[in-house]
């Protein structure tokens, strides 16, 4: 198979890579760049475990070819984690008991982050809608919604930078 040249920025870092044209963004992140915080739960765009932020929008990385990301910017869970400590959303998930098994957590946090970037004061219904593409089997969503709400309300502000 003919390799494709790809320029992509991931978590602020520029990469130039040679990739298979049928490589999924998810595999690029997990296999080529070893960013394993992005998870795979279904492979067909239904569970949201593979959510990353692509040019400011939350997307399912299992549905996107790496080749479609030429010149674009990706943020993964590794990219939202500050050098020291946790981002407000991460801290809030920790504080509000929003994590059980944790498999959905990276995707949830990125969907929440994309929401708050566009709408810093969402209603509960808007939060629920924003994470409705992220399935969680453990938590019943209650504490996840509370965690996101807490950040939106500024209750988690002091903990770090978004």
């Amino acid at each position: 198979m003919k390799k494709l040249k790809l320029n992509i920025t991931v978590n602020g870092q520029k990469h130039t890579l040679k990739i298979d044209p049928n490589l999924r963004l998810l595999d690029l992140l997990r296999e080529n760049l070893h960013l394993t915080g992005t998870k795979e739960g279904c492979g067909i765009g239904e569970c949201g475990a593979c959510t990353v932020i692509l040019d400011g929008r939350a997307v399912n990385s299992c549905l996107i070819l790496a080749g479609q990301c030429e010149g674009r910017e990706i943020t993964t869970i590794e990219g939202v984690t500050p050098e020291d400590g946790l981002s407000p959303l991460q801290q809030s998930f920790l504080d509000n008991g929003a994590v059980q098994c944790g498999f959905c957590t990276p995707g949830m946090i990125l969907s929440a982050r994309a929401l708050l970037d566009h709408n810093p004061t969402p209603t509960e219904a808007e939060i629920r809608e924003a994470i409705s593409g992220n399935l969680c089997r453990c938590t019943g969503y209650t504490q996840i919604v509370e965690a996101i709400q807490a950040v939106a309300d500024g209750r988690e502000e002091q903990q770090g930078s978004l």
């Binding site: 915080g37 946790l86 991460q90 998930f93 920790l94 008991g97 944790g102 990276p106």
Partner: peptide
């Protein structure tokens, strides 16, 4: 706070 959650919110788990 849960003892096993820090690594889960950072994707390090």
């Amino acid at each position: 706070k849960r003892v096993d959650v820090r690594e889960k919110v950072t994707g390090a788990a």
